[in-house]
């Protein structure tokens, strides 16, 4: 007799008819509720959330402004092209951990960051906002927070010119990323990753209230390869001393928090899905869900197109 294989054990459908019927009723109820709400009149927040693919089944604490900004940014950044010079050379993010280690000399890392050539390839330069062009320069920027994991660090700088400016510095890889006032993100990898796709994730650049944290910007680069690289930054409000960033695969990363900012990086193409501020006494404050579906779909489309 031949050995048993996994094909022999393929689940027989329907696995749980009662559960399936319960799910069907749940879907019908939600669809009916949505239809009724639409008939009752417009609701700006709800419509924005629905457009962003947000489900009504889970609590959501993201402002409409953020949803709109992130959705718009998704469309905008898809047009940004990124060159990777040596796709065949592997990059090792050795020693990465969900918990950061001491960053060391932040000022020196900031100087190293500024020294990275600021060359950006934009597919439609004529459409670029002049403010974005101006804010790309890293001159006069000051390093505010450094997130070190293994031998690679993410450094976030701010400058009088505008948006968050960040870079990744590792033994084999360097990346400069600038977020302009309109929320667009530009990346300039000077190292190499196997994958060639990239997206920027715009967010909320306002200053959060006490006890809150905002997602300001992020990038996923090296999409379609292994490893890829994800980075994210944001601000923290008064009383927030820690931030946990949850990725779309469920991984929870402890971000580095300093000078009113938080930062984290990770060696995959998973997208940010949630943000939990932590109070000084360890209290977990209200979590903000991010639009993981929207960006995850974009990542997979890019990965699929490059396959």
């Amino acid at each position: 007799m031949r050995p048993l294989t996994l094909d022999d054990l393929r689940p027989q459908a329907p696995l749980d008819p009662d559960g399936l019927e319960a799910a069907r009723i749940l879907v019908l109820a939600q669809v009916a509720q949505t239809a009724q709400a639409a008939a009752d009149g417009p609701d700006e927040g709800r419509d924005d959330a629905a457009d962003a693919g947000v489900l009504p089944l889970r609590p959501r604490r993201v402002t409409p402004r953020r949803v709109a900004a992130m959705t718009a940014a998704a469309a905008a950044v898809a047009a940004v092209a990124v060159l990777v010079p040596n796709p065949s050379d592997p990059v090792a993010f050795a020693g990465w951990s969900t918990v950061p280690s001491a960053v060391g000399d932040l000022e020196a890392l900031g100087a190293e960051c500024i020294a990275i050539p600021d060359e950006v390839e934009v597919s439609n330069p004529q459409d670029e906002d002049p403010q974005d062009v101006a804010s790309r320069s890293l001159r006069d920027a000051v390093a505010k927070v450094g997130d070190r994991r293994g031998s690679t660090s993410l450094v976030v700088l701010t400058s009088p010119g505008g948006g968050f400016q960040s870079c990744v510095i590792g033994p084999d890889f360097r990346l400069a990323s600038v977020v302009g006032p309109t929320g667009s993100s530009f990346s300039n990898p000077s190292g190499d990753l196997p994958g060639e796709g990239a997206i920027g994730i715009g967010g909320d650049r306002s200053f959060p209230s006490a006890g809150e944290a905002t997602f300001a910007s992020g990038d996923i680069v090296g999409i379609g390869g292994d490893p890829a690289l994800g980075i994210a930054t944001g601000r923290v409000g008064e009383g927030v001393t820690g931030v946990e960033l949850t990725l779309s695969d469920g991984t929870v990363i402890q971000a580095t928090v300093a000078n009113g900012l938080w930062a984290a990086w990770w060696p995959t193409q998973d997208v940010p899905a949630g943000l939990t501020p932590i109070g000084a006494d360890g209290t977990r404050l209200p979590t903000a869900d991010l639009d993981a579906d929207e960006y995850a779909q974009l990542v997979w489309q890019i990965a699929d197109a490059g396959a």
Partner: peptide, 19 residues
């Protein structure tokens, strides 16, 4: 597991309905 699967199914198809 089965207990939570119905919610996953419902959420998945609600996304499909919207999109």
């Amino acid at each position: 597991g089965r207990d939570d699967a119905q919610e996953i199914v419902a959420e998945t198809f609600l996304v499909a309905w919207r999109r």
